[in-house]
Amino acid sequence: MNSETSESMSSMNTSMGSTGLNGSGNETTVRRVAQKAHEAVDRLEQTIGSSGEKMMGWQQEYGDMAREQVRANPLAVVAGAFVVGFVLAKLTR
């Protein structure tokens, strides 16, 4: 749980008093549910962040490989592009 969350939770607990929402049991339930929700959001953020970094790495790797192929065989790349364009043109007619 981050510092903003703990500050807001403590201020919420102070403003609710000792009875909570509808009694003392609900206060702990709300706190537990809020903590679990924040933990789930944190895990999701970490997963998305690491997946995004992986994708950027793959993009860089495959982009470099494509540049190397174009430099090594420029005529083959142009011929391949022509064939792909020709096939797409025939398919869309």
Rank of each mutant, 00 (worst) to 15 (best):
K54R: 12
E68P: 08
S15Q: 01
M65F: 12
E4Y: 03
A79L: 13
F86A: 08
G57H: 05
G52I: 03
A89F: 11
W58G: 02
N73T: 02
L44H: 09
E68T: 11
R32S: 15
Y62L: 08
G20Q: 00
G23L: 04
P74C: 01
N22D: 07
S24Q: 13
V77R: 01
N26Q: 13
G80T: 10
S50W: 12
R71V: 08
S10D: 03
R32V: 15
T29P: 12
G52H: 05
L91T: 11
E61V: 04
E68N: 13
T19G: 13
G17A: 00
S3P: 11
E61K: 04
W58D: 01
A81M: 09
V41E: 10
A72N: 01
R32Y: 15
R43K: 12
S3C: 12
Q46F: 13
Q69G: 07
S6R: 08
N22V: 07
G25M: 07
V87P: 00
M9D: 00
L91K: 13
W58N: 03
N13T: 03
S10T: 00
E53C: 08
F82R: 09
V84Y: 03
T19K: 11
V30M: 04
S8M: 10
M9L: 07
T5G: 04
G17K: 01
N13Q: 07
E4I: 00
M56Q: 11
V83A: 06
G49Q: 09
E27G: 04
E68M: 12
M12E: 00
A40F: 14
T28L: 15
Q46L: 15
M56G: 11
S8I: 10
A81F: 09
V84E: 06
G80D: 12
G20R: 00
G25Q: 05
K54H: 14
E27W: 10
K36I: 15
L75Q: 11
W58F: 09
A37H: 08
S6M: 08
W58H: 06
G23M: 01
F82L: 12
V84Q: 03
G85A: 04
S24V: 06
V77L: 04
G63V: 00
S10L: 02
D42W: 15
E4T: 00
